[in-house]
Design a protein around this nucleic acid. Structure first.
Lengths: 256, 256
DNA sequence: AGGTAGTAAAGATATCATCTTTTAAAATCG
DNA sequence: CGATTTTAAAAGATGATATCTTTACTACCT
């Protein structure tokens, strides 16, 4: 497919002052162009440092600079040893999640903004899960509910299982774009520890999760969306009632 | 704030075989840790290649390797010349948009998946715009509607203005996370050219845009959400009726 | 206020060191 | 004696260093 990326010169580091562009930046641009024009696909060999240096008439360090950039962008995977070199990577959602987390941190968005975006993703996921969930998806949701029940007194395990339940709902939508975005947003918004979670709150959340799984099983997309909307709104309200400050993500005790 | 990133060693290139980790990878990890623990913030000086080389007891090329990676990740901005060196970048949504586009391309998602994710983002944006739009936001929407009306017979200009209208709705939500996601998804999904757009279709889309602006102005969040949902569903249906293939993004003539 | 020179910084090159992978030879077992 | 396994060496690849070149910024002089 042809991805229509921005052509304006201000598109990041591909347009630099001084030298029209550094030599390594030119190599990066060439490889990216080949990727987007489908001349390269995941698994293809991009080349060794020696190969690229020869091809572009530069030193190995320039080639290495370019490969380091491609690696950081998730485009290339590099291997040492005979038969090594750089190959086009397969898509890596976790890398993307990290990139988003970094950018959100740097731009200083508020918890409320992240949670509203998460609400958008999870509501759509719930609706589409009601349409597309498979028997395996239903089984997974039920297994996670049972494990959550068993961990009702263990706040750490419960928090982890809760996130896995939301992840399972998102994956039941069979929309990989929503899955990637869910992973990214929850990297930012999901606390890893939740010391103030009580068994009473856990039980209430578990009840909502059960109802959601039932609506998905009944193929009630509108109902699943509404319940998820209320559920994530409740989480957001608890967060925002505590301090709505960019640097209080970590301190927030609430999840679902 | 504390961003809770994955701590498992398999988190990308920060855990390498052979050498416990390359020297440059260690520098990258240190800088990232400093960023996430708030020891570094946007605008801060990370250091020159010489500084970092001295600090970590390595050569300038190792420091340069690390800085190249941080630059690619959008963490560092590098400047040549006296007073140059690397500083912590400000958040760059366009970089994130490109990263997402690359990853979506590499994972081979379908147009329908991207458009469903876009529908999630735009519906939430419409609802929040109804709550948060300012007089300046309303004025901008009306200006864009007027310019669209004047360009009804110019498919290229109309396509551009149409995207700007959607962007303006998203910005009227005052949620920067939704804005970043909108930019990212439309990098992938929005055709740059639309040769088959007819004035009749343009007029119909313009009517929907007018109604949407009116609902936002009336603060009717539920109505704005419903209209946007139907609108993006219509776009999706037209796309999917043509070929639902990952590599036909570029060829799709439809936008709104 | 403008031009120039000096200095600090990154860009790039040639080369050496180390690591990883592959292949071939030797040893062992049936 | 043939097949299989183990070990070692060679080849290929990246990691890293020292050094030269080019760029950009700042201070000084006219």
């Amino acid at each position: 497919m042809g991805i229509d990326l921005p052509h304006e010169p201000s598109a990041g580091r591909f347009y630099l002052a001084g030298r029209a562009s550094s030599l390594s930046a030119q190599i990066v641009a060439d490889v990216r162009d080949a990727l987007f024009s489908k001349k390269l696909k995941p698994g293809d060999l991009i080349g060794t440092e020696k190969d690229l240096a020869a091809r572009f008439g530069v030193s190995r360090i320039v080639a290495r600079d370019a490969l380091r950039t491609l690696e950081a962008l998730g485009i290339a995977e590099i291997k040492m040893g005979k038969g090594g070199g750089a190959r086009v990577a397969r898509g890596n959602p976790r890398l993307f999640a990290e990139a988003l987390a970094v950018q959100l941190d740097l731009t200083g968005v508020r918890a409320s903004e992240v949670l509203d975006a998460q609400r958008a993703i999870e509501c759509m996921a719930a609706e589409l899960a009601a349409e597309h969930a498979t028997p395996a998806d239903h089984a997974r949701l039920h297994r996670l509910l049972a494990e959550s029940e068993a961990s009702i007194n263990d706040a750490t395990a419960y928090t982890r299982l809760s996130r896995e339940f939301h992840m399972a709902v998102t994956e039941a939508s069979h929309n990989r774009v929503l899955v990637v975005q869910f992973i990214s947003l929850t990297h930012v918004s999901w606390p890893s520890q939740n010391p103030t979670l009580t068994p009473a709150v856990s039980q209430r959340v578990l009840d909502v999760h059960r109802e959601l799984a039932a609506l998905i099983e009944m193929r009630d997309g509108a109902g699943a969306r509404r319940l998820m909307d209320d559920h994530v709104k409740m989480i957001r309200a608890r967060r925002v009632a505590e301090r709505d400050q960019p640097d209080h993500f970590h301190a927030q005790p609430d999840c679902c």
